[in-house]
Design a protein around this nucleic acid. Structure first.
Length: 269
DNA sequence: ATAGTCACCTGAGCGC
DNA sequence: TGCGCTCAGGTGACTA
């Protein structure tokens, strides 16, 4: 599913349709998502004053709180006509005042929807999150300082949301390749210089992916139904046993924390 | 505290 | 055609 660039693409896609609208109603056809969907009736009638992203969460800021939405592995958010017939995995509609609706579709139901009254930052899911990779707080020094003595693989370290958010399996693989760092290396043994390159690679990879509307692998499409074109830019993800696009060496596939991991034995390390 | 594994759920693709 | 297995853009809860 969506990593940061896909969530950001979704945010930008739906923003014009929801900003300033009132939430007319919430239609919950299937409340059994990652956590039970329990949204009070008090959200009805409230205006959407802002829409933003924190990590891979989409935040719909209403007048007295925020709807916090996560797309999990297979989630999708689209703007549809309010009376559009629902299909199999269309679990929730956020019906808007103008007759349109934000529709959450999520076959695997790993996504979630919460209502947080007051300050969204206080929600338990968001409280312990690390820095945003596209913010000034993130950089080589930050990664280096936080990793001393840590023995986890640097790839797992990079995907740890308590450290830095938004970096999922695709972009972790790609950033490590770009920085020339071997995924299995212990985080505590990566040098300061390497972390500088890695932080830069994370930034560049995410920004390039956002520019191209994210990555479409199987079923992800943006809110407008268009696929993401970053797939064409992938160097290692999903390319095990195929030649490295840089040096021609066969890429190696391993498993790290039960996630598919691919790297070039020559370019990385 | 840290590292590793399990669990949640559906669908696609593969070998037999 | 069908069955069983593995894998998939995530991440909180456990365990040692």
């Amino acid at each position: 599913m969506p990593e940061l660039p896909e969530v950001e693409t979704t945010l930008r896609g739906v923003a014009p349709a929801v900003l300033g609208q009132r939430v007319a109603a919430l239609t919950v056809r299937e409340p059994r998502l990652r956590w039970p969907v329990e949204v009070p009736d008090t959200v009805a009638g409230q205006r959407v004053v802002r829409i933003s992203r924190r990590a891979k969460y989409l935040l719909l800021h209403l007048e007295t709180g925020a709807l916090i939405l996560h797309l999990g592995m297979s989630g999708r958010l689209r703007v549809v006509s309010g009376n559009a017939p629902s299909e199999k995995h269309d679990h929730v509609d956020i019906v808007l005042g103008d007759g349109m609706a934000l529709r959450l579709t999520d076959p695997r139901r790993f996504g979630s929807l919460h209502w947080q009254p007051g300050a969204w930052q206080d929600h338990w899911l968001l409280r312990g999150l690390g820095v945003e990779p596209l913010s000034d707080a993130f950089g080589g020094s930050y990664l280096f300082d936080g990793s001393r003595k840590r023995r986890v693989a640097v790839k797992n370290y990079l995907m740890d949301a308590r450290v830095v958010v938004g970096v999922g399996n695709i972009y972790a693989n790609e950033a490590l390749f770009k920085a020339g760092v071997r995924p299995r290396t212990a985080a505590g043994r990566v040098t300061r210089a390497r972390y500088g390159a890695l932080a830069e690679a994370v930034r560049e990879t995410l920004m390039a992916a956002i520019d191209l509307g994210g990555t479409t692998l199987r079923d992800y499409v943006g809110s407008d139904g268009a696929p993401g074109y970053f797939r064409n830019e992938l160097f290692v993800y999903g390319r095990e046993d195929r030649p490295c696009r840089v040096c021609g060496t066969l890429l190696k596939g391993i498993r790290l924390g039960q996630r598919g991991t691919v790297y070039c034995p020559r370019c990385q390390g």
